[in-house]
Nucleic acid binder design. Structure first.
Lengths: 201, 201
DNA sequence: AGAGCCAGTTAACGATCATTAACACCCTTG
DNA sequence: CAAGGGTGTTAATGATCGTTAACTGGCTCT
């Protein structure tokens, strides 16, 4: 084990080179799109130039793959954890909203890339990511059906996509300060979900 | 004047070649991204191959430019028309929501490209599009401030982006039939907007 | 001290791709 | 019928860019 400072909890080891590269690449991909960014640009962003990246990644596509499977897994696991620990269905839904809002505000570059460059993935990676996405949406749909009994499933699915779209809009938004933005998005998301009519019996 | 069928109103002349190309290119750009689509792909999609497109457009970037300035102008003019003709502020807001929902459902490919490939534009086109976008958001912000007096402007701006994000999520959504989707999105959008608290006096 | 891996470097290769050149064919218009 | 513009075609050009090759220096471990 390393001679870490004693006060650091074992989480947050110093960011490894791969992580630096992925973070820089995420920012660039978010701004210019996967195909709009060269390997040299990514290298320059971390202070090395060009093909040095191949010491850390098999290919440029592998970077995107790792980036998007990483974010998808984090989203899914976070969503599972939040709903598992919730008491009432209503509280589970609120937890999901809070989780996604927090995540989107903290990782807006990744959100952008995830929405934008999914189709630039290699086929196996794309299927993996889509499967994780599907399961994350499934968590939302189940929570929503629990909290709004009588809502039919296709509508719940469409409503989920809409709420995620609302929350994922943060990258395009001239940002308020983080806490104001958090409460605004939370309130709007819940308002959108509350607006669904109780079905015609 | 052409020998049109007498029953056709003068709107909707047969789609010109440029329009066919732009429509096909929009679909392809939406699916694969601007840089992910070749000039040959676009040609193949309209039944000609490759460089024939240069008889109709100065460059590939010019296609994207025309596509995005076109959609931005349509959005802005539609928004202006809807708010100008509305009686109450509340009705203006509903009109805007209805307009954008209808537009997004009818032109989901253009919405996708607009969100995704804005930064692939040439600089003059990009500025033009951003200016149009800015003005469209301005229409929303003014309508929102009118309908929700006491709301501060930065919050109104952020709320606008969030609602547009909600509505623009349709391309990612497994679609319900159009009328169900329309009412769902309309209701959720209004619910999100209603959720804002009356400011603490 | 020396062997060897880790992480860089620059230069070359090969593919892809937007754009242009050169040429062919209607379809009108005079 | 001749001329010409509008619309295609295929082949060549030139730039960009991901990837690999060949080579170098430092750190660690014995």
């Amino acid at each position: 084990m390393t001679h870490n400072a004693a006060e650091d909890p074992p989480t947050e080891p110093p960011p490894t080179r791969r992580e630096q590269i992925l973070a820089a690449a995420a920012e660039l991909f978010a701004r210019y799109g996967f195909h709009g960014v060269g390997i040299d640009d990514i290298g320059a962003a971390v202070g090395v130039s060009g093909p040095a990246l191949y010491r850390h990644f098999r290919s440029k596509d592998a970077m995107l793959g790792e980036m998007l499977t990483g974010i998808s897994e984090k989203l899914l696991h976070g969503g599972n954890a939040r709903t598992a620990g919730a008491g009432t269905p209503e509280h589970a839904l609120e937890s999901l909203v809070h989780w996604h809002v927090e995540f989107a505000l903290t990782n807006s570059a990744l959100i952008t890339v995830h929405l934008r460059d999914l189709d630039s993935l290699s086929e196996p990676d794309r299927h993996r990511v889509r499967e994780l996405q599907r399961r994350y949406v499934e968590v939302w749909v189940r929570a929503l059906l629990d909290a709004r009994p009588g809502l039919d499933e296709p509508t719940a699915r469409a409503a989920t996509h809409a709420v995620l779209g609302l929350i994922n809009s943060t990258p395009y938004s001239a940002r308020l300060d983080t806490t104001a933005m958090t409460t605004l998005l939370h309130r709007m998301a819940m308002g959108a979900l509350d607006s669904e009519p109780t079905p015609r019996h």
